[in-house]
Design a binder for these strands. Structure first.
Lengths: 219, 219
DNA sequence: TGAATTATGGTCAATCATTGACCAAAGGTC
DNA sequence: GACCTTTGGTCAATGATTGACCATAATTCA
């Protein structure tokens, strides 16, 4: 049924158009300073039409965050494609992840702000769950790399993958938070990447030394 | 008013979509074998929607012819841009005109068929007039070139421009009709162009010789 | 500090746009 | 010539959208 398909395409296009318009405004101003009337105007629709596609202002915002998170995940996935050591993969992942936010600092700000106040946004349970799930997907890439390291006997078999993943994740986002919005722009990339590279190397060496020390004690 | 502008753009886009769908079908089949239901289906609209934008099936067809004629005119206009002799301009015009239809033979067929039965199509007076006018515009390029030839003293000052224009126009279309749909495709372009070039040269020389003979008789 | 005013998220009756069943007429078949 | 099929064109019903309106929150002012 071409007519029904065309209508569906039009609905999708209209929804995407609203999201694009809203995204621009949310990136220019704070959430509370953006009005639904303004979003509607930019999308060349009425307010009623915006509410046809979205339950609330928060739903629009959440949808934007969701697509940011999904995009970040899809980009970071490429770090799994090269056959190389787990340590090198971790560094490759981190660099791709950092690049994503160097290109779009506002995206990082929004995502991190959301993480800090998931209970404040008044999103539907469904959307909230999707956001958490999407964020976790990217985090899980780190876990996948660590698991490979253990399987290739590069990391100790008793490595606590869940804990290590979270430590790496925290360090990554913590360092990016420290330097993404401050310091000299010309050296920002270098500072962040070298610091994270050093931190990852230290962490990896630490897991190996821990195993050697345990073996030494047993001898 | 963004909303009204968006609605206008959507109406234009929908109309263009109908014309595109119809054009494909009219180029595959005869006018009478194409149904409005089929056009609607190809455009992914209902029949009622098609009649929202067009008064009748003939109106759609006429609109398509109009855009073909306008396109032909715009392409042919470029022959007026080069500063050269009127004779060379005529040949340049002819070659551009021929190329248009070598690329799209069906366009030529449709336009010529229309010329042969303007009274059969049952178009609105308005659309009919637009079609005639558009066809005449292209023809008038020939007249413009001839006028320049007279002004540059390349052609005799007493040249009947209207008559000469029609002679050239008739010869052009007559020769194209003869060879566009028959003969070997590989030599088609060469045959048509060389024949028209020869015909134009003969006609031009004929206008010059006519003036010389008149002068000789007066002496 | 409370009243008045303004701004805005969200709603819904009115309006606009589209659909496809229906009809009349033309063409085809037996 | 009666009957059937096809199709151009129509329009009541339905889907999509609009923007005035309302309730509530935030802001301003005396």
């Amino acid at each position: 049924m071409g007519i029904e398909e065309r209508r569906e395409r039009e609905r999708s296009a209209r929804k995407l158009n609203i999201v694009r318009a809203a995204r621009k405004l949310f990136y220019e101003k704070e959430f509370k300073d953006v009005t639904v009337a303004h979003i509607a105007k930019k999308a060349e629709l009425s307010k009623g039409a915006v509410y046809l596609y979205f339950k609330s202002k928060e739903e629009i915002y959440g949808q934007i965050l969701l697509s940011e998170l999904d995009k970040t995940y899809n980009v970071a996935l490429s770090s799994l494609r090269n056959e190389q050591s787990a340590q090198k993969m971790l560094i490759a992942f981190a660099e791709i992840y950092i690049d994503t936010f160097l290109k779009d600092r506002e995206s990082f700000r929004k995502i991190m702000t959301f993480m800090l106040q998931t209970d404040h946004l008044n999103l539907s349970e469904n959307l909230n769950q999707s956001l958490i799930k999407s964020a976790n997907k990217t985090m899980d890439i780190v876990g996948t790399i660590l698991q490979r390291g253990v399987e290739e006997r590069e990391f100790p078999p008793n490595l606590d993958i869940w804990q290590s993943r979270n430590i790496i994740w925290g360090m990554l986002n913590g360092i990016i938070s420290l330097y993404l919005f401050s310091g000299k722009e010309v050296s920002r990339e270098k500072v962040i990447k070298s610091m994270i590279r050093a931190g990852l190397n230290h962490l990896v060496e630490g897991t190996k030394t821990s195993t050697k020390q345990k073996k030494a004690i047993c001898a």
